[in-house]
Amino acid sequence: MNAPSPARPAWLGLLARAPRGAIEPLLAEAPALPGFIRLRGPEIGMSMVRGRAGGGGAAFNLGEMTIARCSIRDEDGFVGHGYVAGRDGALAELIARLDAALQNAARHASLHAAVLAPLAAAEATRRAADEARAAGTEVRFFTLATMR
């Protein structure tokens, strides 16, 4: 029941990266999520972020970040987990509910269309705009004749 589908990391990442407040309005257009019980949390804590020396060498502890997480079981029997940066426990719970419902083949397609597809499209638009803006600051320097 909790077997990871290859798409599961992708949807969990997409939901966690969504801007604040982006998910709820989409749910208004989607079939209601099933009832659920909380298994753990929502709780707020930290994750130690790691870097690597030189970008690819030995890992080191860069600093912590706040995270929220929640685990639930829904009425269909699916267990969902939500992890998200920041301290929004309600958001972590919402992601856990979506994670559970998205594992249910009977609900997946409609939720994908109502929530995941618009989030992915918005993210792609946002990233393309960021990329275009950054590309607009692309610079070409010319080396002058020696000034010594």
């Binding site: 709780e43 707020i44 804590g45 930290m46 994750s47 130690m48 972020v49 790691r50 870097g51 690597r52 970008g55 690819g56 890992a59 860069l62 912590e64 970040m65 706040t66 995270i67 997480r69 992890y83 990233r127 960021d130 990329e131 803006r133 950054a134 600051t137 610079v139």
Partner: peptide, 21 residues
């Protein structure tokens, strides 16, 4: 705050860089 789960090392090579000089 409790430490819940620590991160994997970030991949700065995959950074969506707005600045890169």
């Amino acid at each position: 705050l409790p430490r819940l789960v620590d991160s994997e090392p970030v991949d700065t090579g995959a950074m969506r860089a707005k600045r890169r000089i």
